[in-house]
Amino acid sequence: MKKTLPLTLAIILSLGAGAACADSVMPGMDMGGQQAKPGASHQAVGVVKKVDAKAGKITLAHGAVKSLNWPPMTMPFRISRGQAETVRAGQRVNFEFVVSGMDATITKIEPAH
């Protein structure tokens, strides 16, 4: 038992570190060789998964973002309260956003036709 405890602990810690690394892929990070240029605007199409106007957050399942070399994914964005009040969960939207550090902020959002 004493010999297996350190091994078990080491495995648990390494799994936790791997999960932390997997979760650390965020907006602004290089996900394929292309860095976000400060202030550059990017466009995508997505589906609104969740809106929290009070917190200024929206979660979108979006398609690939070619300008950032991002694959399709679901992720949170910052959004103004006014913009958040114009969309609802389940709605397909066209949107533009900017990336700053670890944050992606919606600059324009409208229903997709």
Rank of each mutant, 00 (worst) to 15 (best):
M29T: 08
G39V: 00
I12Y: 09
A61L: 09
S80A: 01
N94I: 04
K2D: 15
G39I: 02
L60Y: 01
C21M: 07
G90V: 02
K50V: 09
G32K: 01
F95I: 01
P111H: 11
T8F: 15
G63M: 05
V65L: 03
G28V: 06
K66M: 10
V25G: 10
I109Y: 01
W70C: 09
S24K: 09
C21Y: 14
N69I: 06
V87A: 02
D23C: 08
M102E: 12
V99P: 04
T59H: 10
K49D: 10
L15R: 06
A112T: 10
S14R: 06
M31P: 11
K54C: 08
L7M: 15
A55Q: 06
K66C: 12
V25C: 12
A22L: 13
P76F: 04
K50A: 12
G56P: 02
M1F: 15
S14Y: 02
G32F: 05
D30M: 12
R88W: 11
I12R: 06
V45E: 08
D52M: 02
D23Y: 07
F77W: 04
S100H: 12
G101N: 00
N69C: 04
A10G: 14
S67R: 03
A17C: 14
G39Y: 00
G101W: 04
A104M: 05
R92C: 06
A84T: 01
A55K: 09
S80Q: 01
N69T: 13
I11Q: 08
I109Q: 00
G33N: 03
M1L: 13
L5P: 07
A44K: 01
V65K: 00
G32D: 09
V98I: 10
K37F: 11
R88G: 15
T8C: 11
A36H: 05
P111S: 13
A17D: 11
L13Q: 08
Q91L: 04
P38C: 08
A55Y: 08
